[in-house]
Write a protein that binds this DNA or RNA. Structure first.
Lengths: 339, 339
DNA sequence: TCCAGAATCCAAAACGTTTCGGAACCACTT
DNA sequence: AAGTGGTTCCGAAACGTTTTGGATTCTGGA
C-alpha cells in the first residue's frame, strides 16, 4: 500500500511537500505539484483515513443509530426511506455513513457515547428509539453533534427534524368529522414516543374544536404494531360498537385495525372509516387503499443529514426543522352512514 | 478525551502495561489490571479506533456497496432486507458496517478500490450492481475480501451467495404448466444481471422438458422496473393475445404486468396467470395477491456477512453459498381456461 | 549462597498523516 | 551593499495505539 513517504521518495521531495501538494496548498510550485499528482496516480496512492483522522481529530464519518433494522420490521419501510434520504445526501458530500445498531446485545455492553467515541464519528443521526431508551439521555449529555428524527430535544449540540404531528392529526380527524363522523376512536402508539403524544393532542384538539366529547376509553395503545393493534381494535370495536371511525397513529396499526374489522365482518369504509398515519408503501397497495396522513420520510432523512453536516462544517448550532404533512384520501374513509 | 496515556499517568504504570492490561494479556499482575480497569472506567475511557487501526492495519469494518438505495427504489425493499440481515450479524460481532453508495457522482470520481482503501475496510459486501458496472472488475482484481450477492464470481478473495435461480424459475414455470398453461411468456430483467440469465435458463428448460416450443418473441426485458414491464407487457399482450401466462423475473415487474392486464381489461388470473419472483413485501398485499418464487433475502444478507467475517477472521478462502427457493401460490395463477 | 526461570513491567519504535516554524533562495528597491 | 518581501521547500513534532525485545524483581531449589 503506497504511502505519502513512497511518493516523497520517488519525487525527491519531503513528505510535507507531498501532503501540501495533494491538499491544494498554495506554497508549492505548480510544476512539483503536477509531478507529485502524476506519481501518486501512477503508484495508485490513496490516503489512509485513519492516519488522517488521528491527527486531524475528525473522521468525516457520521453515524446512524437506528432500532428498526431487524427482520420482523421489514414491513415498515420507514427506516429504509430515512436511510435512502440520508444516503442521498452523504453520497454527494465527502462524509461516510456508519451504521450503529441498537438491536443487539451490544446495546447493553456499550453505551451510546462509547460507541460514538470509539468510532470517532463526527456526528450522529438517531431514529426510531423510544423516549425511555437510556441512549437518549446520553445523547443530550454527550457533546457529539446530533440530529434526532421525530424526537424534540434541542440543545447546543442536538437538533431535530420532525413533522407537525399535531397539525397532521387534526387534519386526519377533521377529515373524518367532515364526513359526518361523530364517534371517533384513536389507536395510538405508546407513551414512549413523542409522535404519539402530539398526535393525541391533535386528535383531542380537533374533537374539542368540533364540540365533540372526548371518550378516554376510546383511546387505546397499539404499540405501533400491526398485531397489537388488531387485538386492541377487536376489543374496542366489540365493547363499543357505536364507534364509526378510527384514527390510527401509524399505517401499520391501521392495517391491524382493518384486519380486526374484517374478523368482525365490519365493512370498511361503509361500516367503519379507518385513517392511518405515515403513508408507508403498503398504504396505497392494500385493498381498500388506506387513507392516511403522508409525511415525506425521505425528505426527513435528507434534511437530517444536511442539517448535521451543516453544523459540522459551519459550526452552526443545530436547530429545529418541521416539515408539513398531507392528507391522502383513499378508500378506507367514507361518509358516516349511522347516527 | 481520555487516552491510554492519561490512564498510565494516573495509575502510575506505563502505557504499555495499560494497553496490555486492557487487552487481556497475561503478563500483567491481576491487581494492577483491576486498578487500570477501574481507573479507565472512572475516566470514561474508550479506545481510539483510528489509532488502533493505524497500527494494527485493520479496521474491524466492513463496507456495504449497494446501488438500490435511492428514493425511487423504495418500493423494492430487497435492499432493506439484505441490510437487515447483514446488520443482524454485524450487530453481534465486533464489526461495524459502513455504507458505500454507488448512486452518486462519487462513483465517477473514485474507483472502487480507492473507496475501500481510503476507508480501510477489511472486507466488502456488494449488492445490486450490474454485471457491466466497472466496479465489478475492480473487485475481482483488488485483493480485498469480498462477498457478492447474486453475482457468481469466485476467486481466492471473492465469494458469493445466491439462490438457485434456474431451479426457482423451473418451479415457477412448472407450476404454470401444471395448471394447464401451454402459451407462457417471460418478462425478464436485463442482460446485465446474472439472475436474469439463470431464470431464463430455467424458463427454457422447463418448457423443453414439457415438450413445449420456445417462442423467442414471447421473451421480453422489463429492466426490473415496474413501469418498463407495464409497457412491455402491454405490447406483448396486444400482439400475442393467445398468451395465457407470464413468468416474471421479479415481483416488481409482475406488478407492472398486472397493471398492463388491467388496462387491457384482462382478468387475472382467469384471463391471464401471472407469477413473480422474489416475494417482496408487496406481493402478499396487492390484490389479487401475487403468486411468486420466494427467496429468503434476509438470510442472504445474514449469510453474506457471516461468510465475510469468517474469511476475515479465519483467513479461509471465500466460497459459494446457494440457498433454496420456495413457490408461494397465491391468487394470480389459476388453471388455463383457454385452449 | 547462587542460579534458573517465572512474573511483571517498561522504553522506544512504528503506523501514515498534518502542521508549525522556520530556512533557503531569488528578485527588487533603496 | 543592504534590506525587504515573496516563493518554495523542509525537519520535526504530534495524534493514540500496539508490539518488540528486553530489564527488573521475585521465588524456590540445589
Amino acid at each position: 500500500m503506497t504511502t505519502i513517504k513512497d511518493i516523497a521518495r520517488v519525487t525527491g521531495v519531503s513528505v510535507t511537500t507531498v501532503s501540501r501538494a495533494l491538499n491544494g496548498y498554495s506554497d508549492v510550485n505548480e510544476k512539483t505539484r503536477q509531478k507529485i499528482i502524476r506519481v501518486s496516480k501512477e503508484m495508485n496512492y490513496s490516503p489512509n483515513t485513519h492516519a488522517r483522522s488521528l491527527v486531524m481529530n475528525k473522521s468525516k464519518t457520521i453515524g446512524l443509530l437506528v432500532s428498526g433494522l431487524v427482520k420482523s420490521s421489514v414491513k415498515d419501510n420507514f427506516t429504509l426511506q430515512i436511510l435512502a434520504g440520508i444516503n442521498q445526501f452523504t453520497a454527494d458530500s465527502d462524509y461516510d455513513l456508519v451504521l450503529f445498531s441498537t438491536t443487539s446485545t451490544k446495546q447493553r455492553e456499550k453505551t451510546y457515547s462509547q460507541l460514538c467515541k470509539e468510532r470517532r464519528v463526527d456526528g450522529v443521526i438517531i431514529q426510531g428509539i423510544r423516549t425511555d431508551d437510556p441512549y437518549l439521555l446520553e445523547v443530550v449529555e454527550s457533546n457529539i453533534p446530533c440530529v434526532l428524527i421525530d424526537i424534540p430535544i434541542n440543545s447546543n449540540t442536538v437538533g431535530y427534524i420532525t413533522t407537525d404531528n399535531v397539525e397532521g392529526a387534526k387534519k386526519a380527524v377533521n377529515h373524518l368529522i367532515g364526513l359526518g363522523h361523530k364517534k371517533i376512536a384513536m389507536m395510538n402508539g405508546h407513551e414512549f414516543a413523542f409522535v404519539s403524544k402530539n398526535r393525541l393532542e391533535g386528535f383531542k384538539e380537533a374533537l374539542v374544536e368540533a364540540d365533540l366529547p372526548i371518550h378516554n376509553e376510546w383511546i387505546v395503545n397499539g404499540e405501533f404494531s400491526e398485531e397489537a393493534a388488531e387485538e386492541k381494535a377487536l376489543e374496542l370495536l366489540t365493547e363499543h360498537p357505536d364507534i364509526t371511525a378510527i384514527f390510527c397513529a401509524s399505517d401499520l396499526m391501521a392495517l391491524g385495525v382493518m384486519k380486526a374489522a374484517k374478523r368482525l365482518a365490519i365493512d370498511v369504509p361503509n361500516g367503519l372509516s379507518v385513517i392511518g398515519y405515515d403513508d408507508i408503501l403498503l398504504a396505497s397497495y392494500v385493498t381498500p387503499a388506506l387513507t392516511t396522513i403522508s409525511q415525506n420520510i425521505y425528505e426527513m432523512g435528507y434534511g437530517a443529514a444536511k442539517q448535521l453536516v451543516h453544523t459540522l462544517e459551519e459550526g452552526a448550532e443545530p436547530n429545529v426543522i418541521t416539515l408539513g404533512t398531507e392528507l391522502k384520501v383513499r378508500d378506507t374513509t367514507g361518509p358516516c352512514l349511522r347516527r
